[in-house]
Amino acid sequence: MDKWTTGTEKTLKLPSKAFFIGTWNVRTLYACGKTQELTHELKRYSWDVIGLSEVRWTGFGETTLVDGHKIWFSGEETTHQYGVEFLVRKEIANCSISATPISSRLISIRLAAKPHNITAIQVYAPTSDHEDDEVEKFYEDLDNSIAKVPKKDILIVQGDWNAKVGPDAFLQWAGTAG
C-alpha cells in the first residue's frame, strides 16, 4: 500500500512535554456517530495519539474531523471487518512525517520529535482461531514493518494482540492486563 507523506511543520520536543500515546479496541467506528462519540469520550483523558483497533472502516485513507483532529486508517477493501487507525490530536497533527497503511491489521505513523523521531505501529492481531497462514502473514508483515523503522527512532508497537491470558491475569499483572 502507499505511504502518506504529510510534511512536518512542527517538531515535538521530548521530554520537555509529556507525550501521551495509547491504544483502544473500539469494537466499531462504522456506525453513524461513533467517531464523535469517541472524540467526546477522549476529552476526559490527556492524549496526543491514539491507536485504534477493530474500527471496521473500508479501504485506507486520511481524514480531518470537525474538531480538527486527524485520522489515518487502514481496513479491508470491501468488508467492514478488522481495521486499524491512528487518531492524532489537532495540536500535534502537523508533527506527522508519514503514515503507512500495511494491512487491515497493521498501520504505522512516524512523528517528528526531538531528540529522536517516534514511529508507532498499531496492530490488531488475529486470534488463534484464525488459519495458520493468516497468523503467519500478520507476524511476517509486522516483522517487515519493524525492520523498516529507522534505527534512531523511538519505536512503539501497540494494539490488540488478542491474547488469552486467563481469568485471573488482572491479579498477576495489575495495571497491565484486565
Rank of each mutant, 00 (worst) to 15 (best):
I102N: 07
R89Y: 13
S96R: 10
F60A: 12
P101V: 04
G61M: 04
G83P: 01
W57S: 02
A120L: 08
N94I: 08
K43R: 01
E54Q: 10
E85V: 02
G61Q: 07
V55W: 08
V123L: 08
T119E: 06
L106W: 02
R105T: 05
R110P: 07
G68Q: 02
E77L: 13
L111M: 14
V55E: 10
T100L: 13
Q81P: 06
T100I: 15
T79D: 12
Y124Q: 01
C95R: 09
I102C: 02
Y124G: 03
A99K: 08
E77C: 11
R44Q: 08
W72C: 14
V88I: 15
I71F: 08
I97P: 03
E76F: 11
Q81R: 15
V66Y: 12
G68V: 05
W57P: 02
I121D: 06
V135A: 08
D129Y: 13
L87I: 01
T58K: 13
D129V: 14
E136F: 09
V135N: 11
E85Y: 03
E131Y: 05
F73N: 03
I92P: 03
V135K: 10
F73M: 00
R105F: 06
I102W: 01
S104I: 11
K114R: 14
Y45R: 15
V135F: 08
K43V: 00
R105M: 08
V123E: 00
W57C: 00
D132I: 05
R105C: 06
Y124V: 00
S96Y: 06
D67T: 11
T100R: 06
F60N: 09
P115Q: 08
F60R: 09
I107F: 00
T63R: 13
K114S: 15
V135H: 12
W47F: 04
A99P: 04
H116W: 12
P101M: 03
L106G: 08
E54K: 10
I97K: 02
N94T: 14
L111Q: 10
R89E: 15
D67C: 11
V66T: 12
K70E: 06
G61L: 04
E134G: 02
S104E: 02
G75A: 08
E91S: 15
P115I: 02
A93T: 01
V88L: 12
P126Y: 00
R105G: 11
Y124M: 05
S108L: 14
W72G: 13
A99G: 14
N117T: 00
E131F: 10
G61V: 05
S108D: 14
S46Q: 12
K114F: 10
T127H: 10
E136N: 01
V49P: 03
T79M: 15
G83N: 03
E76L: 09
R56S: 03
A120V: 06
I50W: 05
D132G: 07
Q122W: 01
R56P: 02
D129Q: 06
H130V: 00
R44D: 14
E85Q: 12
P115D: 07
I102A: 05
I97W: 05
I109H: 03
T58R: 00
H116C: 10
E54N: 00
Q81H: 15
L111F: 09
D67Y: 11
H116Q: 09
